[in-house]
Design a protein around this nucleic acid. Sequence first.
DNA 1: CTTGTAGGCGTACGGCATATACCTACAATT
DNA 2: AATTGTAGGTATATGCCGTACGCCTACAAG
Lengths: 206, 206
Amino acid sequence: MPRPRSLTQDQIAAAALAVIDRDGLAALSMRAVAAELGMSAMALYRYVGDRQEVEGLVVELVLGGVDVSSPPGTSWRERVTTLVGRLRDQVGAHPHIVPLTMTHRHRSAGVLRWSEAVLGILAEAGLAGADRVVALRGLLSYVIGAVQLEHLGPLSGAGTTVFAGLAPADFPYMAETAGHARLVGADEEFYGGLAIVLRGMCDPLA
Amino acid sequence: MPRPRSLTQDQIAAAALAVIDRDGLAALSMRAVAAELGMSAMALYRYVGDRQEVEGLVVELVLGGVDVSSPPGTSWRERVTTLVGRLRDQVGAHPHIVPLTMTHRHRSAGVLRWSEAVLGILAEAGLAGADRVVALRGLLSYVIGAVQLEHLGPLSGAGTTVFAGLAPADFPYMAETAGHARLVGADEEFYGGLAIVLRGMCDPLA
DNA sequence: CTTGTAGGCGTACGGCATATACCTACAATT
DNA sequence: AATTGTAGGTATATGCCGTACGCCTACAAG
């Protein structure tokens, strides 16, 4: 008998994501999302239990959009690279959500689907048992860390030493690295690191 | 002429860390830290500019405590493993700060010192130029990601599928992996993944 | 046309970060 | 010993936040 629902969870997620993309993560609030949807803040609570659930919906919206099919006719390393790259691209399209992806990673169906796809490829490559578990964790760790390094401020350079109140001269390697880093693009860095991880799998330790 | 300062930044950081360790990250507030120190909330603002600065001090306290000397007489891989392990241990002693380490990583002198030490070892190992940059980023990405995976909830398993409202049967690999994961300890997983990363460095791509 | 369910809203509470204005302890000066 | 200016500490207040509660009302089933 009751009045029909006027909102889907996707609409809520999209509204929250719009707020985040426009005004940053700190601006995400129940009031802001409600305003984005043209409702009062309390109306939102008919659709979600609390703020955390809204955050979860945003993460799911972004991470659920990753295509987990892998290109046929290529090596397993290439296929994993494709999946890893898609995950990175999806997050990169909404950099502000990076901290959210961490907090809500463990309840995201999108991450689950992605992991399942990667495991399939690793299995085809001949990895099984504990080796496969460790390989997946290694890949996941790398992507998570790399995405955050990429989007949560510069890794090094003058900015860091200035903030920390330290002399750049005390950190010769970092100074030199910062110079190189400026020349190495973000893509080369990301895929270069990924290549290291992939190279370390399967081949016996020298 | 003025009245002398009665607090050091270390004391503030220690108080904030005590609050976090005892009541969790969500309980960190200017009021809580001030109470821990036996002062009014506003007195804190004589020593720090804002809440973010308190968070930065906590990160620095924890990350600055990492010993960055490396054991002599061992291979470069072993030495890097030692440094990576120390970083992991330090964060592991205060798991609640994990999200903070991310948000404040780029202004932490501790991370800078750690990176400098790792770069020194990599340089000795013969890595230079862009290779060395990529190697450091790869290592840093791995540690960051792995520490978070370890402390921010289970990676997979029944819990995840239940939360996401999905059937475990749709994720055969993840189901199997979850079974293995229960057998593989956190240490083996962490150091196994690190071995993969280290193995991928230096050796030419097959 | 009635009716009960559930949608939407207004209000209110307690907690947060923090700006402002004040009082006061104290060390340097007299 | 008295004075004084700097800076430490506090009280108060503003405007956010999440969200509990209670009301009104739109709407579909009967």
